[in-house]
């Protein structure tokens, strides 16, 4: 281990890394909201026993769960513009790939949550005069979402890690900037170690909080 660790260069290039961190935060915020929000709609469509909503939702979920997210991002970047004539920049390609992938995964989480609710809850909603959608919105969903909260948090953690894939289509985020610093200063060890540490420091408390949440919910149920 004769390596002289040199973190000074990283500190000097903090501005470069900061731009990347902001990029990571932007793409994470957008994709986590679209992914977990859109997933709720897809999950409900998948749950409802109506072929018009169910089949498209099922196809969407299977396609996006059974292909790698990197393939999705690259497909949206290089293939989608040819197919549709829509211009796609790195941000849009990565956002589409990560959001749609997350929608498919979280849809299955929401569906599992809704299915875990006892039929008695539906019947009780109906008994006090609620329509199907009222019962779903006011009785079923609040309980269902609470039950799947740990699974959703885990998905959120995955989304944060997935944001690094945006660097493959040259979207400016943390890993992309670390690569830049590493290439310019010949210090890949320090650059990539710092990125790994940043992700660890951000996500470790979130993971611990998820464990705590799981325990609390397990006790309550």
């Amino acid at each position: 281990m004769g390596h002289d660790w040199d973190f000074v260069t990283i500190a000097q290039n903090w501005g470069v890394l900061w731009v990347g961190l902001k990029g990571t935060l932007v793409i994470f915020s957008v994709t986590v909201v679209l992914g977990l929000g859109g997933g709720l709609i897809v999950g409900i469509c998948r749950y409802i026993r109506h072929p018009v909503s169910r089949w498209p939702a099922m196809t969407f979920i299977e396609v996006f769960r059974n292909t790698p997210v990197l393939v999705q991002i690259i497909w949206f970047y290089y293939a989608f513009p040819i197919l549709t004539g829509i211009e796609v920049d790195p941000f849009l390609a990565a956002t589409l790939g990560i959001s749609l992938n997350t929608m498919a995964f979280s849809a299955e989480i929401y569906r599992a949550g809704i299915q875990s609710i006892e039929p008695g809850q539906w019947e009780a909603g109906k008994a006090i005069g609620m329509t199907y959608s009222q019962a779903l919105r006011r009785v079923i969903l609040p309980v269902a979402i609470k039950r799947v909260l740990p699974a959703l948090t885990n998905r959120g953690i995955e989304v944060f890690k997935m944001s690094t894939l945006a660097s493959v289509v040259a979207y400016i985020e943390t890993l992309n900037q670390a690569k830049l610093i590493a290439d310019l200063n010949f210090n890949p060890i320090e650059s990539y170690t710092v990125v790994a540490l940043i992700f660890f420091v951000v996500l470790y408390p979130v993971v611990q909080a998820t464990y705590a949440l799981e325990r609390t919910l397990a006790k309550g149920d």
Partner: peptide, 16 residues
């Protein structure tokens, strides 16, 4: 290894 992105790990093992 669960909280860091796999792409960062790969770059670390390959370049660092």
């Amino acid at each position: 290894f669960r909280t860091t992105p796999p792409l960062v790990q790969l770059f670390w093992f390959f370049f660092a």
